[in-house]
């Protein structure tokens, strides 16, 4: 497979030169970018990252001067997308990956992957910070997180989640560890089914990212937020931060949607990468971005630019967290 691809690219390059000679002169000026960027999304079409990326790119396209083409490679909690990106996409800065640092670094740490961070890829910048939450369906008897913890000392509480390698899962497990409650995470293989399970009462509650659950309205009652403050109190029936409610010391369990790029591209094309980073940052001060981001379902309070260094820090933190809870997150003992 790999061999075939390599050969293909060699030929591709040869014939590409021929085609370039036939193409209109404008193409040959070499200004980056002179063709659409290829966006790889390691989760499903229509998912949270997809929506956020499309909203973001609508504005980014203005500053970058290029359009975006999307492909989706979901599977194995994002591993498939990252493997494809690293092994099969050329490191030319035209190929970028839109992902979510928290869940995907936990996946990196807990699954047997063939790539290495940060040797093979780096995050260039992040576009929002989304907090983990626990919520219950409107028919649930739990009104506060304290009630759930109390009950959890008597019996095991079931919480739905889209997949085990996820910050909200670690949040719930850390909560259980800190309070002595018993909790069992039930992965549903997708955000939709996980939310549905909590609303229809198959499980006691749902542990997930905040923004994906905001559209549920009165069907969801938010119990707690895994961060120091609740940044969207009016949208989440003023659910208390977990540490404030229970006196615990659980670190923030956030997801950061971010773009990643091949580490080789950073070395080989520093000018291209600089253009990507600079224009990426410009989007945040564009007044139009607020409108499209909110249309895509992300509250403006969550939109927050993070540079490459902060992404790297966050990525490393999640690898450490995942290592601590490895036994509960993996099938290989």
């Amino acid at each position: 497979m790999t061999n075939m691809f390599n050969r293909r690219h060699v030929l591709f390059a040869g014939a590409g030169a021929l085609a370039a000679s036939l193409a209109p002169a404008a193409r040959a000026t070499g200004a980056f970018p002179d063709k659409p960027l290829q966006v790889l999304i390691p989760t499903g079409e229509g998912g949270g990252v997809d929506q956020a990326a499309r909203a973001f790119n609508r504005i980014w396209a203005k500053y970058l001067g290029a359009n975006f083409e999307y492909s989706y490679f979901p599977g194995a909690s994002g591993q498939v997308g990252y493997e494809v990106f690293i092994s099969k996409r050329p490191a030319d800065a035209y190929n970028i990956l839109f992902g979510n640092i928290g869940p995907e670094m936990i996946m990196y740490a807990t699954q047997k992957v063939k790539y290495k961070y940060p040797e093979d890829f780096v995050y260039l910048g992040s576009m929002d910070v989304d907090d983990s939450v626990i919520w219950v369906g409107s028919g649930s008897k739990f009104k506060t997180i304290q009630e759930m913890v109390d009950e959890g000392k008597k019996r095991e509480i079931t919480l739905s989640t889209s997949r085990l390698p996820h910050p909200s899962t670690i949040g719930a497990l850390a909560l259980a560890e800190a309070t002595g409650m018993k909790v069992r995470m039930i992965p549903y293989g997708g955000g939709g089914p996980a939310r549905s399970a909590a609303i229809t009462g198959e499980v006691d509650g749902c542990a997930t990212f905040l923004s994906s659950s905001l559209g549920l309205g009165d069907q969801a009652r938010f119990l707690t937020v895994f961060n120091e403050t609740n940044r969207a109190p009016e949208l989440t029936n003023n659910a208390p931060p977990v540490n404030a409610a229970l006196g615990t010391k659980i670190p923030p369990m956030s997801g950061q949607r971010a773009i990643a790029i091949h580490a080789k591209a950073v070395e080989a094309y520093p000018d291209r990468v600089k253009k990507l980073s600079d224009t990426f940052q410009q989007v945040f001060s564009d007044p139009d971005y607020k409108a499209v981001a909110e249309k895509a379902g992300t509250p403006w309070e969550f939109i927050q630019y993070g540079d490459a260094a902060s992404c790297q820090k966050s990525a490393r933190e999640f690898v450490e967290l995942a290592d601590r809870y490895r036994a509960l997150l993996t099938a290989t003992k």
Partner: peptide
């Protein structure tokens, strides 16, 4: 569909842009 491009596809895209 994202088939690998061959001589025909490249020629066609060069001609019709």
């Amino acid at each position: 569909t994202s088939f690998p491009q061959g001589p025909f596809e490249r020629l066609a895209s060069a001609l019709i842009g």
